[in-house]
């Protein structure tokens, strides 16, 4: 029983670390603000979530103590990180940060132009 629970905890924490690492690589490697934000806001969310879940499982299965604060932390990260990603994207777009040169389509720009003309 202890062995299985140790395996689950170790798996979750390693998975979280892996996702965080991939997010960091993505931030370095991807070409522009927007695609970097994709990597940062998704992969790091799941990374933090699974590390926290592993911590919760550790307390629950090995110490036999349900730590509700860790669960609350999971909920807060889950709710706030997509909003943060959205706000950073929006701020970048309104500052006029250019899209990557291989980007193919920009509906928002055409919509704004149409509005100005009116």
């Amino acid at each position: 029983m202890i062995e299985i629970s140790k395996f689950i905890v170790g798996f979750l924490i390693l998975l979280g670390a892996l996702f965080s690492l991939v997010a960091a690589i993505g931030v370095v490697r991807l070409p522009d603000t927007y695609t970097r934000n994709h990597a940062a806001s998704k992969s790091s969310t799941l990374g933090v979530l699974s590390i926290l879940l592993g911590l919760f499982m550790y307390y629950l299965l090995i110490d036999h103590h349900a730590n509700a604060r860790v669960l609350l932390g999971i909920v807060f990260v889950f709710i706030t990180s997509p909003v943060a990603g959205h706000l950073i994207m929006r701020a970048a777009y309104n500052m006029g940060v250019p899209l990557w040169h291989k980007s193919v389509r920009d509906d928002l720009k055409t919509a704004r132009k149409a509005k100005k003309r009116r």
Binding site: F19, V22, R29, R105, L108, K109
Partner: peptide, 19 residues
Amino acid sequence: AVLKVILSPKLTMRPGIFA
């Protein structure tokens, strides 16, 4: 999906904004 894009050897994606 993001993991696949980041770890693929070439960046072949075509980003864009749609309504």
